[in-house]
């Protein structure tokens, strides 16, 4: 999605530039994908409204910033807001359904998708708005025509930091332990006294907060603007990233995100018979191939079916 103007560049420069674009896009997809992975780990559910929740969070951040809250403070409050909202949604809409019965859950998240999208459009209107810059602007270095912008560096770094924080949270804290127990076996964790509901709510809140950060970073891209429909494309790309990495693996989400970014910004550009606009289709084809040949993704745990 990042189209940098090239006047004339050497092939190698062009390749490198495209790799940087891939990293930029890939990191933002990875952040949304991480949110999906968290929810999938907890409830084996794919939340189709994840992108919209993140978009709503990013709009809240923008609104707070408009009111004069400092940028990173606004992001923090926005993350808390969407975390609380997600915990509420989990309690009100998701918990009463049997996690093994997928259809009602898919329908509920599709309903959320429509509602959140409509509410955001009613409050903030459809016209794109520019999002404040989260990171220093300009390039970290520029040799010839290769430009590595600070945005790329920071987007990637924040993605890695988020993953480290989440991993520490899940492996070192008590609630993280509970979360892992629930995601591995709900029945046994209930028997050992873990409060399932609270743990799932925690998972939803964490996912929504990560998603909001992702959407804020995504919207802070100097070439993009924030609008209610901005997550439609990103949703498909992030879902593909999540599936590619293995739907239950945090680091898989990063690998998946970078791969999708790479396919989109590098591979598609070098295959002559695939036009540029087909990057979304390319992602769907990647998704198809992954699901057919390796449904558990690159780093995911394989499902074992007992008969």
């Amino acid at each position: 999605m990042l189209y940098v103007e090239h006047i004339w560049v050497h092939d190698m420069d062009l390749l490198l530039q495209r790799v940087f674009d891939a990293v930029t896009n890939g990191s933002t997809y990875a952040l949304i994908a991480v949110a999906m992975v968290l929810i999938f780990k907890a409830t084996t559910l794919i939340n189709f409204a994840q992108g919209e929740q993140a978009m709503l969070g990013a709009f809240v951040v923008l609104q707070l910033w408009d009111w004069g809250v400092p940028m990173w403070g606004a992001v923090a409050i926005g993350m808390c807001f969407s975390g609380v909202l997600a915990a509420f949604l989990e309690r009100a809409l998701i918990r009463k359904f049997d996690p093994a019965d997928h259809l009602p859950l898919v329908i509920i998240t599709l309903g959320l998708f429509l509602v959140i999208n409509a509410v955001a459009a009613i409050i903030w209107r459809f016209d794109p708005k520019s999002f404040p810059e989260l990171f220093p602007s300009g390039n970290a270095f520029a040799i010839n025509n290769i430009r590595l912008s600070w945005y790329t560096i920071f987007a990637f770094t924040s993605c890695v930091i988020v993953l480290f924080v989440l991993q520490t949270l899940l492996s070192k804290t008590k609630i993280g332990l509970a979360f892992r127990a629930v995601s591995s076996n709900i029945e046994s964790s209930r028997l050992s006294g873990i409060k399932i509901g609270t743990t799932l709510q925690f998972g939803w809140a964490l996912a929504a907060a990560a998603g909001t950060l992702g959407a804020s970073i995504y919207a802070a891209n100097p070439v993009l603007q924030i609008e209610p429909s901005m997550m439609l494309r990103a949703l498909i790309l992030s879902v593909t990233a999540a599936a590619l990495g293995g739907l239950d693996s945090l680091w898989g989400a990063l690998i998946g995100g970078l791969t999708i970014g790479f396919v989109q910004s590098v591979v598609v550009q070098y295959i002559p018979f695939i036009p540029n606009e087909m990057s979304l289709s390319a992602a769907v084809i990647v998704l198809l191939i992954v699901l057919i040949f390796r449904p558990s993704g690159v780093l995911g745990t394989r499902a074992v079916e007992r008969v």
Binding site: T44, L45, I46, F48, H102, V106, L232, R233, I236, V239, T240, A243, L280, A283, V284, L287, L288, L291, I292, P295
Partner: peptide
């Protein structure tokens, strides 16, 4: 080969 949620995902991608 693809079932449940994965199918939902793929068909949604197709629509997109």
């Amino acid at each position: 080969r693809i079932r449940g949620l994965y199918l939902a995902l793929l068909t949604f991608g197709l629509a997109a």
